[in-house]
Design a protein around this nucleic acid. Structure first.
Length: 237
DNA sequence: GCGACAG
DNA sequence: ATCTTGTCGC
């Protein structure tokens, strides 16, 4: 798919903050126009994981049929993170390589499920929002742990939710995707609203805590990273 | 100032 | 994120 990626990515914290400030106003919270037919899962794996800019990274995107959750297409990309891990500036570490994986897709997914936050971010511009603005497509964030906000514990049954508020507004929703398991944090990225985002996540996670999109992308990027290690001559069992 | 902090 | 075996439970 076509993507308008930045000519150059920021390498300093100040430059990254400036990019977020510039793009944040473009985020739109609106209902999905129609039922999504395809869902894309994105994830990145790290080698070393010291959180430094020169960590080796592998990104993966997996497109699934929204109804059957069966894989339709997938792509990967590897490289250097290019930016250190700084909470709130997470996107500058994963987006560059993620976009290179997305460019290889021959189909354009209806909704992108990101591994991380969207609006539930210090400056209301997490990874999911950033990806949405750059692609112009609906995106949402589903995080395993919250980054900020206050909420009450949702009921134990699958489907139970509780709004997450921060700074006086609702920025996300904790969603119990499976009965008795720790809820995930869902927030909008772009061109979707919280109700639709919650619905998409619940339908994508019929069996496990994390959506099938995330699970498959996680497996794929880990394999891709291992593939780099093998080609580099790193011994393994 | 100190600690926390998506992955 | 990643380093890592076994173990408790459905």
């Amino acid at each position: 798919m076509e993507i308008r990626a930045p000519q150059a990515w920021p390498t300093t914290e100040a430059a990254a903050l400036a990019v977020q400030a510039e793009l944040r106003p473009q985020v739109r919270a609106v209902p999905l126009g129609s039922r999504p037919r395809t869902l894309a899962g994105l994830d990145v794996a790290y080698a070393g994981a010291h959180g430094s800019a020169d960590d080796e990274v592998a990104a993966a995107v997996v497109v699934l049929d929204a109804e059957t959750l069966e894989p339709i297409e997938q792509a990967t990309a590897v490289g250097k993170a290019g930016f250190p891990y700084i909470p709130g500036l997470f996107a500058f570490r994963e987006l560059p390589v993620l976009l290179r994986a997305l460019e290889q897709l021959t189909v354009t997914p209806d909704v992108f499920l990101c591994d991380g936050q969207g609006l539930a971010h210090p400056r209301r511009f997490g990874l999911a929002c950033h990806l949405g603005v750059l692609t112009g497509r609906p995106t949402l964030g589903v995080a395993k742990t919250p980054l900020l906000g206050e909420w009450s514990e949702p009921d134990a049954e699958r489907g139970s939710t509780a709004d997450v508020t921060d700074g006086g507004g609702v920025v996300a929703r904790v969603v119990r995707t499976q009965t008795g398991v720790k809820p995930v944090t869902v927030s909008i990225g772009h061109l979707i609203d919280l109700d639709d985002a919650t619905d998409v996540v619940l339908r994508a996670a019929p069996r496990y805590r994390l959506p099938e999109t995330t699970r498959l992308a996680d497996r794929l990027c880990r394999d891709a990273l291992q593939g780099v290690a093998d080609a580099t001559g790193v011994k393994s069992a």
